[in-house]
Computed example of a mutant assay.
Amino acid sequence: MSHSTNLSHHSRRIDLDAPLHRKAGPMTHAMQPVESAGEAQTSQACPTPRYLTNSEAAAFLRLSPRTLEKQRVIGGGPRFHKFGRRVMYAVTDLEAWAGERSFETTFDPEYIDRHPGVQRDDQ
């Protein structure tokens, strides 16, 4: 008696976009959060800012959470909000902070002004 497996009668198709088969976790792409259909409709109706925790903001910027903690103390980091003991970052503040740190080259005058170590190395 042979037990060969014949799957031809199973013509069931798998929908990879169905929630059952989607990747687990808050993000499918490094910088784009997953939205369900209900969230997409409410986010368009209410333009309220979205806030991220320290860990979420660090992941958004691809930094260490400890780096953001240090920058809150010594300065130079993105603007943050305090809600009681909780520290939160608005996505718009993170994007603005990151945008302020874009340069064409390391010889860009703005880059040299912001990085005094560059001038020290030239001496």
Rank of each mutant, 00 (worst) to 15 (best):
M1L: 11
H9E: 14
R12I: 14
R12Q: 15
R13W: 09
R13G: 05
I14D: 03
L16H: 07
A18I: 02
L20G: 09
R22S: 05
R22D: 00
K23H: 12
P26W: 00
T28R: 13
P33S: 10
E35N: 07
E39W: 01
S43G: 02
S43P: 02
A45V: 06
A45F: 03
C46F: 11
R50E: 06
Y51I: 02
T53C: 03
E56S: 04
A57H: 03
A58M: 02
A59N: 02
A59C: 00
L61W: 05
L61M: 10
S64P: 03
P65F: 01
P65I: 04
P65G: 02
P65D: 04
R66G: 04
R66Q: 10
R72I: 07
V73E: 14
G75R: 04
G76I: 01
G76W: 06
P78H: 01
R79Q: 12
H81G: 04
K82W: 06
F83Q: 11
G84S: 03
G84L: 08
R86E: 15
R86C: 15
M88V: 15
Y89N: 02
D93Q: 03
L94R: 07
E95V: 14
A96G: 05
R101H: 10
R101N: 10
T105L: 10
T106Q: 12
T106D: 13
F107I: 10
F107K: 14
D108M: 00
P109V: 03
E110M: 10
Y111I: 03
D113V: 08
R114M: 10
R114V: 00
P116C: 01
P116Q: 00
P116Y: 05
Q119G: 01
R120W: 10
R120N: 11
D121N: 05
D122P: 00
Q123S: 11
